[in-house]
Amino acid sequence: MVYTMVNKIWIFLFIIGITYAIFTGRAATINEAILSSPKASIEMILNLTGLFILWNGLLQVAKDCGLISAFARLIHPVTRFLFPELPKQHEVHGLIASNMAANMLGLGSVATPLGIKAMKEMKKINGDKDHATRSMITLLLINTSSLTLIPTTIVSMRKINGSINPSNVIPMIILATSLSTFFAIVVDRLFAKLSKK
Score class of each variant (00 low, 15 high):
Asn103Pro: 07
Ser109Phe: 11
Ser98Tyr: 10
Met136His: 12
Ile116Lys: 13
Met104His: 06
Leu140Asn: 12
Lys129Met: 09
Ile137Ser: 11
Thr112Gly: 12
Met136Phe: 06
Lys124Met: 08
Glu121Thr: 10
Leu139Ile: 03
Asp128Gly: 00
Arg134Ser: 15
Ala101His: 10
Asn99Thr: 15
Asn143Cys: 07
Thr144Glu: 02
Ile125Thr: 03
Ile137Cys: 10
Asn99Gln: 10
Asp130Gln: 11
Leu140Ala: 14
Lys117Ala: 15
Ala111Ser: 11
Leu139Cys: 05
Glu121His: 13
Gly115Ala: 06
Met119Ala: 05
Lys120His: 14
Thr112Lys: 15
Asn103Ala: 10
Asp128Lys: 15
Ile125Pro: 04
Leu107Phe: 06
Ala132Gln: 13
Ala102Val: 00
Leu141Ile: 07
Thr144Gln: 05
Met122Gly: 00
Pro113Val: 00
Ala111Asp: 01
Met119Phe: 08
Leu107Ser: 08
His131Gly: 13
Glu121Arg: 12
Arg134Leu: 15
Ser145Asn: 13
Ala101Trp: 11
Asp128Ala: 02
Leu114Thr: 02
Met119Lys: 13
Asp128Thr: 12
Gly127Asp: 05
Ser109Leu: 11
Glu121Asn: 13
Ala111His: 05
Met119Tyr: 08
Ser145Met: 03
Ile116Ser: 07
Met104Val: 02
Ala111Leu: 04
Asn126Gln: 13
Gly115Thr: 08
Thr144Cys: 06
Asn99Gly: 09
Asn99Lys: 11
His131Arg: 15
Thr138Val: 15
Ile137Gly: 06
Ile142Leu: 09
Ile142Lys: 13
Asn99Val: 04
Ser109Glu: 09
Pro113Lys: 03
Leu105Pro: 08
Lys120Tyr: 02
Ile125Lys: 09
Lys124Phe: 10
Val110Ile: 14
Thr112Ser: 15
Ser135Val: 05
Val110Leu: 12
His131Val: 14
Lys123Val: 01
Val110Trp: 07
Ala102Gln: 05
Met122Asn: 04
Ile137Lys: 14
Lys123Asp: 01
Arg134Cys: 13
Lys120Leu: 10
Met100Asp: 07
Ile142Asn: 08
Asn126His: 12
Thr133Phe: 05
Leu114Tyr: 03
Lys117Pro: 11
Leu141Pro: 02
Lys129Asp: 03
Ala101Asp: 06
Gly108Val: 03
Ser98Glu: 14
Leu139Thr: 06
Ser145Leu: 03
Ala111Tyr: 01
